[in-house]
Amino acid sequence: MPVKQLQSMVYASLMAALIAMGAYIHIPLGPVPIVLQNLFVPLAALLLGSRWGSISVAIYLFAGAMGIPVFAGAKGGLAHFLGPTGGYLLGFLLAAWVTGSIAEHSAERPVAILLAVTFGMLTIYAVGVPWLKYAAGLTWSKAVLVGMVPFLVGDVFKAGAAVVLARALKPMVTRQLRPTSS
């Protein structure tokens, strides 16, 4: 296997571990907790691109599904995908792809990267809120009020942090991912 592919594989695993660490730092308010996962999900996509970013999220979800305690609140298990927050978990996967795809076509412009992260975060809610509505039996307004509104202010900061971190770390990753041989 080429070294570059092995490097991408190891980097994606590291980002999956970082997403898990982001889930450990969480504040359980209401049915959907405040977590740092949605800071590391766009960061993975910005650093590794849409393909490997999505793969890192998929690996994170798979590890959680197997019972390893990597979800918010150090939980794990397949049942979490069927619970009220299952949509957010699946939304992470789509968000990584959306963020990575937009960023790849933006020629590294900060505004475009911010836009990519914003669309990525909206994707999480686009999947998570309807899921929450049906899983918890809420009305649309209640689902938006409980599953989206309380997190928007925090998300603005997280989006800003993701862009700043991505701009600082991208040269490091690009340098490290430069193949030494194939």
């Binding site: 594989m9 571990a17 970082l18 898990a20 690996i59 197997m66 390893i68």
Partner: peptide, 11 residues
């Protein structure tokens, strides 16, 4: 399998 094992190792 390798990536999951690496993720657990990285924690």
């Amino acid at each position: 399998a390798m990536m999951v094992s690496l993720t657990v190792k990285f924690l």
